[in-house]
Amino acid sequence: MTRDADHLLPTRDPVRLLTEAGKPTGLPTVAMPPDEALVRAYAALVAGRRLNDQAYALVRQGRLAVYPSSHGQEACQVAAAQVLADGDWLFPTYRDTVAAVTRGVDPVQVLTLLKGDWHSGYDPYEHHVAPQATPLATQLPHAVGVAHAATLRGEPTVAMALCGDGATSEGDFHEALNFAAVFKAPVVFFVQNNEYAISVPLSRQSAAPSLAHKGVGYGLPGERVDGNDMAALLAVLGAAVTRARNGEGPQLVEAHTYRMQAHTNADDAARYRSDDEVAAWTGRDPITRLSAYLSDRGLLPAERRQEIDEAAERLAAVTRNGINQDVTPDPDDLFAHVYATPTPQLREQRALLTDELAREAS
């Protein structure tokens, strides 16, 4: 069967509803989201930025082993979480802490993984947020599987599968897109293109016109969006979720954004990008852009802005206090959750360790 590829192609330029100064572009692309959705998104943006800064401080204090900040990418994080219904699933990467918290997960539980604890820190079923995936793209086939299973059960579930530009070079990315397209699985593949896969620039990863064009080869539509424009993100991702829920299949969305800080605290970003490059993105900050728009509309009075700032500080305090609590590890956890029924080898190893600890204590 031959399919018309024209409807699969993304727009030539990323969809944008707000200029960098926070003014409406006036372009007839997609409808502006409702005012209340934008105010709610602004509050989550401010909270997300404060969470990023607090987590980075906890790394420097030795309370977190590592933190991959999404400073500058918070609009992508917030929009991905807010366009989902309660029964939908979010599949985050290691950099998507803000998305998980926006979805309702306790920030202390989210950061438990990055503290070096033994599990992901939260119950994935409570808020329908899968464990944060450190290996690139491995969560994408999982998202497709959950979405396809929901379709077989007759459930209106949509999966939002997050990844970065580096993940599009992995085999799991292509396998997930192909399976989703063939079976019309209700998945939104959301690529946060922040220009670098650690230190590898996008130009060394792909020769495609855009990452959104990669959907064409698998028979699913692609779209490009300004990843620092909260209004455009809510509109584009919201439309993709609605399309998937209505049985129209998966979609690939590429957001053009930028990682303002280093890949992690273990990375020296100055080795592969210039200060001028970073400075050029400073003026595109998603928070100042949306703040300007809402202020011009009279939707962000001083008292509301203060409420939002105070809520963000409370989130930071909860995170700081929770991570600063010392946890006494239980050696038995090494064996308790390996298999539902322990193997003879595990029982033997547990007995040896128990005996050794008992002798040391006596």
Score class of each variant (00 low, 15 high):
T157Q: 14
T157M: 12
T157N: 06
M160S: 11
M160H: 09
L162P: 01
G166N: 09
T168S: 08
T168E: 02
E170C: 15
G171S: 13
G171W: 15
D172C: 00
F173M: 04
F173T: 02
H174T: 02
H174E: 04
A176F: 15
L177C: 12
N178W: 04
F179L: 15
A180T: 08
V182F: 07
P186A: 10
F189W: 08
F190T: 07
F190W: 11
V191G: 05
Q192E: 15
Y196M: 08
I198L: 11
P201L: 09
P201H: 15
L202V: 12
R204L: 14
Q205R: 01
S206I: 03
A208P: 03
A208H: 11
P209F: 14
L211Q: 04
L211D: 01
H213C: 06
H213F: 03
K214L: 13
K214G: 11
G215N: 15
V216A: 07
Y218K: 11
L220M: 09
P221R: 04
E223Y: 09
E223C: 07
R224E: 00
D226W: 09
G227H: 00
D229V: 01
M230F: 10
A232P: 03
L233Q: 08
L233F: 06
L234F: 11
L234M: 14
V236D: 00
L237P: 02
G238D: 01
G238S: 05
A239S: 13
A239R: 14
A240N: 06
A240Y: 12
V241W: 07
V241E: 06
T242M: 01
R243P: 10
R243S: 15
A244E: 14
A244Q: 06
N246M: 06
G247S: 07
E248F: 02
G249P: 08
G249T: 12
P250F: 09
E254R: 01
E254C: 07
A255N: 13
A255Y: 09
H256A: 10
R259W: 11
Q261S: 00
Q261W: 12
T264F: 12
N265H: 12
N265Y: 04
A266D: 12
D267E: 13
D268N: 15
A269Q: 15
S274A: 06
S274G: 05
S274D: 03
S274H: 07
